[in-house]
Design a binder for these strands. Structure first.
Lengths: 186, 186
DNA sequence: CGATACATGTAAGAAGTTACATGATTGT
DNA sequence: ACAATCATGTAACTTCTTACATGTATCG
């Protein structure tokens, strides 16, 4: 089962708390999560698809006045699917495919799989980036002559982006190590 | 006229040199430009759309043996459209919408609009980022209590990405300043 | 009463994905 | 003869975008 990033984002948010489409949309509009799409024309159909495939279930709740709200919850199948997605290995290939999906996964990992899994995620990410960045640097150097200055710079920008992620991963690992000095996971 | 990023990428590459769909696809497959899609099912239809709207024109060239190649060139309307896109102001809104389009534009700007325009692009980008990053930092700090550690970290990662772009913009400005000590623009 | 916030949706169209189809030429 | 590479495309499907439609309740 392959879902869009938006669908996974919805699944992850619903795991945190049952919500209506309107509630969910507010989150997308008000936080940097807007990048997964904030339009009702994407969110409502995505919820309908998730319900049709049995990952969530909506129930109309006639709360205090107002129009009827349809509140969605994860089903057990939905929880399974979410865990399966979050548990996928963090490989170099995943990094190449794009950081967006990985960061979305990270945002939900601790809550759903526990802080040991979150730490593992970060370590795998660190390793993948450490292997990928030199490849890009090498590409830049071998193509150096062939590229115009703007091409070189555009590539440099991408590489710096990955390096920045690498720095962040180390920082995040340190944060978890710090916090877990006393407590245990999950 | 609104085109997809892939279409603009094709336009920009064709401005650099007339190419067949196959040539173009090789570029997408072999360089980090793959992120704009590397599948023939995207590239050929995109070229057909561009031709239909008069921005490029393809001519079958029966070169040495092999199957017929259809080589595309920008039309004057295509050049106009490309310049219009490249010339759009670099605003905070553009930054929020996403760095991908901006970096693609930068990669073509110098060649098409000259190095003065490229420098201006970088200065505008620097300004936009300098205004945007503190907004995000502020959001992070005000939400600090409400967010779980993984949420905070995910946001921190995004912010660092923008900071990295800011650092790059300064670096790129310095590179241009260095190079232009003797020569003039365009 | 009219504007605004709450709340859910649909319709038309654009553009991407994967997978397949087709065909010419070159190397083994 | 067969596989690999060159080269162009199509078909089915998925999902997003923009714009619109609909309706309730509250506030000034």
């Amino acid at each position: 089962m392959r879902l869009s990033l938006l669908s996974y984002a919805l699944l992850g948010l619903l795991e945190q708390q049952p919500s209506s489409g309107y509630d969910l949309r507010k989150i997308f509009v008000q936080t940097p999560m807007w990048s997964y799409s904030d339009s009702p024309g994407a969110i409502y159909p995505a919820l309908a698809r998730l319900e049709k495939s049995g990952l969530i279930r909506g129930r109309v709740e006639a709360s205090a006045g107002l129009r009827r709200r349809k509140v969605f919850r994860l089903t057990s199948a939905g929880t399974v699917e979410l865990k399966k997605w979050l548990g996928k290995p963090v490989s170099r290939e995943e990094v190449i495919r794009g950081m967006e999906e990985l960061m979305l996964r990270f945002a939900f990992t601790e809550r759903v799989l526990g802080s040991a899994a979150a730490t593992q995620f970060l370590k795998d990410l660190e390793k993948a980036l450490q292997s990928y960045v030199p490849t890009l640097r090498e590409f830049l150097e071998t193509q150096n002559e062939a590229l115009p200055i703007s091409g070189r710079l555009a590539l440099e920008s991408g590489i710096r982006g990955y390096e920045s992620q690498l720095g962040w991963a180390k920082y995040a690992i340190a944060m978890y190590a710090e916090r877990n000095k006393g407590g245990t996971s999950s």
